[in-house]
Write a protein that binds this DNA or RNA. Sequence first.
DNA 1: TTGAAAGCGCTAACAT
DNA 2: ATGTTAGCGCTTTCAA
Lengths: 341, 341
Amino acid sequence: MARKSATGRIGIADVALKAGVSHATVSRVMNGNFTVDPEIAARVREAAVELKYQPNPVGRSLALGKTDTIGIVVPDLANPTFQAILRGLSRAAAEDGYRVLIADSFEVPSEEAILAGEARRRCDGLVLCAPRMTDAELEEIAPSLHPLVLINRTTAAAGVPSLVVDYGQGVQDLAEHLAGLGHTRLAFLAGPAGSASNRLRLEGLEAFRNRHPQVEVSMLDGGSDFDTGHEAVDAVLDSGATGILAFNDLVAMGLMSGLHERGVSVPGDISITGFDDIPFARYTTPTLTTAAVPISELGGQAWHQLRALIRKEDLETADTRYQPRLEIRASSGPSPADLAP
Amino acid sequence: MARKSATGRIGIADVALKAGVSHATVSRVMNGNFTVDPEIAARVREAAVELKYQPNPVGRSLALGKTDTIGIVVPDLANPTFQAILRGLSRAAAEDGYRVLIADSFEVPSEEAILAGEARRRCDGLVLCAPRMTDAELEEIAPSLHPLVLINRTTAAAGVPSLVVDYGQGVQDLAEHLAGLGHTRLAFLAGPAGSASNRLRLEGLEAFRNRHPQVEVSMLDGGSDFDTGHEAVDAVLDSGATGILAFNDLVAMGLMSGLHERGVSVPGDISITGFDDIPFARYTTPTLTTAAVPISELGGQAWHQLRALIRKEDLETADTRYQPRLEIRASSGPSPADLAP
DNA sequence: TTGAAAGCGCTAACAT
DNA sequence: ATGTTAGCGCTTTCAA
């Protein structure tokens, strides 16, 4: 009978018994150790196949001190940006035989540290995606999370590579684009308060203001999803701005939908820009002007950085900076003030 | 010094040493066993905190025979449907202290069985999402994957609960809706060939045809993403149909975008329906008529079924069938033939 | 080339 | 109430 082990599953001992060898030999064969006599190896393999034996990964993990698994902590799995990062990460890691364990903090900053620690202990490394926790907290826990890679966040802690998108530059490019179209009253529909990428956008806008003192840039509270944009219609109309920089594509889409309901023409009356260039952006009506971010590439890069750390190839912990690319489509046009004198 | 164990990390032995007790006692304290003297327990806890000790999950898993992790295999992580299922699953599992390990088969059916087996071995249970493998193969591997829950697929194998969306009924409801608006020439923009959910839609349309012999329903080849819809514009126009049933919302959006570029009015000239009711559906222009599927609820339910199996509460392995809900929005309207006599 | 034995970090039965 | 001991399933020295 096959079921010898306590768990009821077939273990290395069953194969050893069937092949008439020790478990050490079975282990050697399973791991491709060539010091085993070919004849015996064949017998072992045969027994393994017959019993449909597959090594227990938990046992291996304990013995080897590695799990072939990495973790990722995201603030919100419903956000297309994080979904794309996850996909890129999962794809790249899979090519090296690693699996991904996910942890969603549901935008609760206080949960992040716990989730991160827990995930890290089960894995060989961790990707922390746009964490909402404070700099101090991040810096404090970073060492215990090593190997660790950050996305859209940096830290003073040593040995933690960061992949950050230059949202500041991106938003400046968008603002320049609108200014170039004659818009002199812009409004920024901000993102979540704790978001570091929102801070970068604000810094970028500050730089823009300094270069263009004649352009008014008002700030409107917001968020990161459709509803935020949809609910911001009144605030946007009240602001009197003709060029709206939405926090991201989702917000822009919600806003466009709301303006459409009010009979406001885009870009006839108001020009709108998004951020991210999610796949949907080229299918909205009108198609959305935005700043394209190579999101899923970011996930792939995160794995490559993490892999280097896991393999202790950490020769270079240089941070990587991604430049968004301006994607001009139909949602932005000349300022109506320019058209109707 | 704290670092005693071979791995360099702090282990139970370090805490035992520091608190002057055996590791068994430390284990008892960490697991809330009340047979420990309160004073000693406090001393142990203190030592644990000072050393920042956290039990190694791999060690626990091996000893307990459980990992507090479940796996999910999806055909394509880029698909919003699977993303939503993943999110619902992850959320529900997290509430019970379980984590989710993901495996993406990238639409390669031959990979599924391997990925599934591998994932299952690392986890306490598995969710197989719309597997593309054959019925025979699924039935063969199902027993070795137990506890197993299927989504949008059924199997003859015993003890495997299925959660399936009634795509057949949904597409019939949509077709009835269009017929009720006076459309007599419909076209179905089909999905991926191997997809079981596409087969269900085709069956539903067959039933519809039998009930409405006077309505013409032509079949157009397609796929499951934006581009499919966008590229289908010519085929759609050539078909002469005034009511288009797109495979899903993505295809519908791509199609609407393409028709918009051609100056075709929706729903003035052509009515369009999607399927799924992804969040974007209510923000398209015009808003999309579709059949709403409670996708992320599906993920939650999958966890509840799986949890019952893990806990061996498998009293009822009844399959669950979800009825899509017709969501009538602005992309469908009266047949132009009815309007212009 | 192979087997015996130790050990990965933990839990739990057993003994005290 | 606590310590000792024996696993969980595997890899890997160390002997032979």
